[in-house]
């Protein structure tokens, strides 16, 4: 196939569990610094697609490219493990349920991977932790354990942990869905800051207002296909597809 022309390229992504096809020939490109939101009903394959990008759920067909390198390239097992571990260092991921390491302090959560994988010194690690935790407004809690934090604080630490690897791309899988409503804004604020710094991001979300305010492009997925894609004004205000309209209508009703 041809060399990639885009920062992130997903080519004909296909994923099946047995006979059940979760992703059906999805192609998608993201430019450096762009922010793409993925919306769609439950079970449409949003998480599966996102998790395929760093090979957490490997595709059964198609290619993923990041910054000129194929993520899911065919290699013998050992080599592939090395390759994928290296690739994942460039892709930060934020989960719905935070997945902070409960046995480590906030500081250790942030510094564990850089210390282990980049061999930085204790001093550098501490500087890095302070820098990243300042960034997400969590410096006061640097020596707390995750069990001592609110959901919003946990998620901000999880973002700092991902950023500490200095990723080229950040993936968010419903980063605010598990939060109490009053805690959503503080996490959204952090994501907006990242947007202003031109971090490339792919965001799976149920929050249409947030998607509309930070994203360059919105993808509407349903039943494993991209039904519609375009700038948020277009997809949210004036979608071409009936399925998109119906989803947005239902979603608005649900929100009320």
């Amino acid at each position: 196939m041809t060399d990639p022309q885009h920062f992130v390229e997903i080519r004909h992504a296909q994923k099946s569990y047995g006979k059940f096809e979760v992703l059906k020939d999805i192609s998608l490109t993201v430019e450096r610094g762009q922010i793409v939101a993925i919306i769609g009903p439950s079970g449409s394959g949003k998480s599966t697609l996102l998790r395929a990008i760093n090979d957490l759920d490997p595709l059964t067909g198609g290619e993923i490219w990041l910054d000129g390198v194929q993520v899911n390239k065919k290699l013998p097992h050992r080599q592939y493990e090395k390759h994928i571990n290296a690739m994942r260092q460039h892709v930060g991921m934020v989960f719905q349920h935070f997945n902070l390491f409960p046995h480590l302090t906030v500081r250790e959560n942030v510094t564990m991977a850089p210390k282990l994988l980049k061999g930085i010194s204790e001093d550098e690690a501490n500087k890095l932790a302070e820098e990243q935790l300042n960034h997400v407004g969590m410096i006061e809690r640097i020596d707390y354990y995750p069990s001592q934090l609110s959901g919003g604080q946990k998620q901000r630490v999880a973002i700092a942990r991902a950023l500490a690897m200095r990723p080229k791309l950040m993936l968010f899988d419903e980063a605010t869905s598990a939060l109490d409503p009053e805690l959503v804004e503080e996490v959204n604020q952090v994501m907006k800051t990242l947007a202003e710094e031109h971090m490339t991001m792919i965001i799976v979300t149920h929050e249409m207002d947030f998607a509309a305010s930070v994203c360059d492009r919105v993808l509407f997925m349903d039943q494993g296909v991209v039904v519609e894609e375009g700038p948020p004004e277009k997809v949210f205000r004036n979608p071409d597809q009936e399925r998109t309209r119906e989803f947005l209508r239902k979603h608005l009703e649900g929100a009320k």
Binding site: L56, L116, A162
Partner: peptide, 19 residues
């Protein structure tokens, strides 16, 4: 999710187990 979070950061399986 613990193993997944560790792998996502780039840790190998044995590193994730150990740490």
């Amino acid at each position: 999710g613990q193993m997944e979070a560790a792998r996502t950061l780039g840790l190998s399986r044995s590193q994730a187990l150990r740490k």
